[in-house]
Computed example of a mutant assay.
Amino acid sequence: MLGVLTAGATFVPIDPEYPLERIEYIVQDCGIRHMLCHPTDRQMASALQNRVTISLHDISSAIDHGLASDFATTMFPSIAPSNLAYIMYTSGSTGRPKGVMIEHHSLATLVQQAAECTDIRPGGRHLQMLALTFDSALGDI
């Protein structure tokens, strides 16, 4: 997730435990073209046709072989503060889940404010306690 953000791209957290219908809806609704997943989640990702599924293991291997910059440039060619940072989907209590879109500059402001308010410095530690599919988790991250 941090690598996707660093590349200036957008992440959409999807819990592999979600029902496949919800996962398919989210993928279709926000137009996911690439999916990063843990190797054990490939079955879920492979059920989503016409998407490029990239294992986190494959990315780790690319980094080990010095191919990370080529990989990032190919996947995420343009970076701007107005690019979407993430799309977080609601619980869907009104029928269909809705995607809430947050841009990089907004997330950067949140991170800066959180660091100032909590006095977290390089080398400091903070316990991440919330699920990645919950918007408030970004404050922990």
Results as ranks from 00 to 15, higher is better:
87 I>D: 15
109 T>F: 00
78 S>D: 15
56 L>N: 05
90 T>N: 07
43 Q>F: 11
84 L>V: 02
88 M>I: 10
66 G>Y: 14
61 S>A: 14
106 S>C: 03
106 S>M: 02
111 V>T: 03
100 V>H: 04
75 M>F: 13
58 D>C: 02
92 G>L: 07
82 S>Y: 04
46 S>Q: 05
107 L>F: 06
98 K>P: 04
49 Q>G: 15
45 A>W: 03
106 S>F: 01
73 T>H: 06
124 G>D: 15
44 M>V: 05
85 A>W: 00
60 S>L: 06
82 S>E: 15
43 Q>K: 00
68 A>F: 13
42 R>Q: 14
63 I>Q: 04
62 A>R: 00
95 G>Y: 12
46 S>Y: 12
89 Y>P: 01
122 P>R: 00
42 R>G: 10
109 T>N: 08
122 P>Y: 08
72 A>V: 05
111 V>Q: 00
124 G>A: 12
83 N>F: 14
60 S>H: 07
99 G>P: 01
78 S>G: 08
124 G>V: 04
43 Q>W: 09
115 A>Q: 03
70 D>K: 00
77 P>R: 02
49 Q>I: 02
100 V>A: 12
65 H>K: 00
110 L>E: 07
53 T>K: 01
91 S>Q: 01
51 R>D: 10
121 R>E: 15
74 T>R: 05
41 D>H: 14
116 E>N: 07
47 A>M: 08
63 I>M: 08
117 C>Q: 05
94 T>G: 09
46 S>I: 02
103 E>S: 04
117 C>D: 10
97 P>E: 12
73 T>L: 09
62 A>M: 07
125 R>C: 09
50 N>C: 08
51 R>L: 13
55 S>V: 03
116 E>C: 06
64 D>T: 02
118 T>I: 03
52 V>C: 12
95 G>K: 00
102 I>P: 01
87 I>K: 01
55 S>W: 11
79 I>S: 10
90 T>K: 06
70 D>I: 04
49 Q>A: 15
61 S>R: 04
123 G>V: 02
56 L>W: 15
119 D>Q: 11
85 A>D: 02
119 D>S: 09
97 P>G: 12
125 R>F: 14
93 S>W: 11
94 T>V: 04
107 L>C: 07
46 S>G: 09
68 A>P: 01
48 L>M: 05
47 A>R: 11
87 I>C: 15
54 I>P: 03
116 E>S: 13
44 M>F: 12
68 A>G: 07
103 E>G: 03
101 M>C: 07
65 H>W: 06
66 G>W: 15
90 T>L: 11
102 I>S: 06
106 S>L: 02
101 M>F: 11
91 S>D: 12
125 R>L: 08
62 A>C: 08
53 T>S: 14
110 L>F: 10
57 H>E: 15
105 H>Q: 05
113 Q>P: 01
50 N>S: 11
76 F>T: 01
44 M>C: 11
93 S>M: 08
72 A>I: 07
95 G>W: 07
75 M>D: 09
118 T>Y: 14
98 K>Q: 11
66 G>F: 14
76 F>Y: 08
107 L>G: 01
